[in-house]
Design a protein around this nucleic acid. Structure first.
Lengths: 236, 236
DNA sequence: CGCGCCCTTGACCAGACTCAATATTAGTGG
DNA sequence: CCACTAATATTGAGTCTGGTCAAGGGCGCG
């Protein structure tokens, strides 16, 4: 509907000086080493469903969600992209979903035309697509076949094992982050998991009641029984 | 689990005499115009989740479904691939889902290594991935946010507008196939839509009762009120 | 004709949603 | 630093959609 891009909240910067930000290192340094970097504040829309397509993006730091909205307002968050992830890649002429930051994010803006000319960029993009497809398939299983509790447990596992989210989690035992930040509101989590906000809240409360997790101020979760969470995830 | 490929039911054929498995036509015809083609019978498994990865495939005719199964047996069909579609593309070392034919199918077998060397193949593959990702996002909305009736209606629309399925539908007015074959059992449809077989059956019956569709022998659907189906799909 | 498979239908149940009230947190200004 | 407000999250009660379990129907194939 709305074709506006980058409202006030975002600012643009140039990576340039000595930096050498081609989408890809080495060989891609055609004109010069410049990569356009933009900063988006929390909950800032990068592009809307229906917008014309010009660029694609890489998350340098922060986190972005992609979502689609049905005519009656129901929303489904279809993807969450963390640092290193790319989004907005498409051959079509218009966006099939909306991209919005979850938290303040720094994005590298890249041009589709570069893809064709720069083999490394193309290759990297392709790997990204494969990875995203793999994750979407797992997510389809979650959405199509898992119970509310299993969805929430799976979601926590994703956070623990580092998918999406960046930020400063405290890693404890062998590399797992046992205290993770929930970079999303309950509503966003619900829309990602295909549930309602109430069901998400109830599931979290139940997990806490059972002693599997604990909360710090609503957006930090301490996983006290990883095995227990794993058992509830429906995956094994 | 099982690493067997191509059990008895499938047979291998050669598109051309001197075989020479290049992925793409034209420019890729290094040795000769040869593409390895295999025939799979109905409900034949092309590869299993967990199998080592060697090739990827293009559907020449027929239809293939990709699915994942949870430890307790719940299944989610994550993708349906019709003629022209590709599947099994991956950089990983093992399959993340199982591929099984819905109906007898002819597949072109291609090698991942060719991708890197043949730009056209790589490009085409990349477009495929983008297309699949786009469809998966729509499907995520269906799985996460649509009611049973909306899912079934959306599924019928997909058939009418030609996605997936091949076979001989009778096209009527402006290019839409108003009588389409359901190339899947009720169970497969249910597993694709994240429902139970009973719910799918009830939804079909309800649509028939309302006079929106009609059946020939259970696997042919005649859409008598496309607008009505569209209205129920939740998409507008 | 009879068997087996798939599909349909019904009755009942349960998990998730809806609506509503309350609690908690975050943000603002004194 | 605290008070006040707005936004977000939790909890409860009741409802309903879709799942479960079980019985019956239709069709193809030998």
């Amino acid at each position: 509907m709305d074709s506006m891009v980058n409202p006030a909240k975002s600012s643009v910067a140039l990576d340039s000086s000595p930096i050498a930000p081609c989408p890809l290192p080495a060989r891609a340094k055609s004109p010069q080493n410049q990569a356009l970097t933009i900063l988006h504040a929390e909950h800032d829309v990068v592009f809307h469903e229906g917008d014309d397509i010009s660029h694609y993006y890489e998350v340098i730091d922060g986190a972005v969600m992609l979502y689609k909205i049905l005519p009656d307002g129901r929303r489904q968050v279809v993807e969450i992209v963390g640092p290193g992830g790319m989004f907005g890649i498409s051959c079509d002429d218009s966006r099939d979903c909306t991209a919005e930051t979850l938290i303040a994010s720094r994005l590298r803006v890249m041009d589709h035309v570069n893809c064709d000319s720069v083999p490394e960029a193309h290759c990297r993009m392709c790997k990204q697509l494969q990875e995203q497809l793999r994750e979407m398939r797992s997510h389809a299983v979650l959405l199509g076949r898992k119970s509310a509790m299993e969805r929430v447990a799976s979601f926590i596992l994703c956070l623990v094992f580092g998918r999406h989210v960046g930020s400063d989690e405290s890693c404890d035992e062998r590399g797992h982050k046992l205290t993770v930040r929930l970079p999303m509101t309950r509503q966003e989590i619900a829309d990602y998991l295909g549930l309602t906000i109430e069901t998400v809240s109830r599931s979290f409360s139940e997990l806490k009641r059972r002693g599997l997790i604990d909360f710090d101020k609503n957006d930090w979760v301490r996983v006290t029984d990883l095995q227990g969470i794993d058992n509830l995830s429906g995956t094994r």
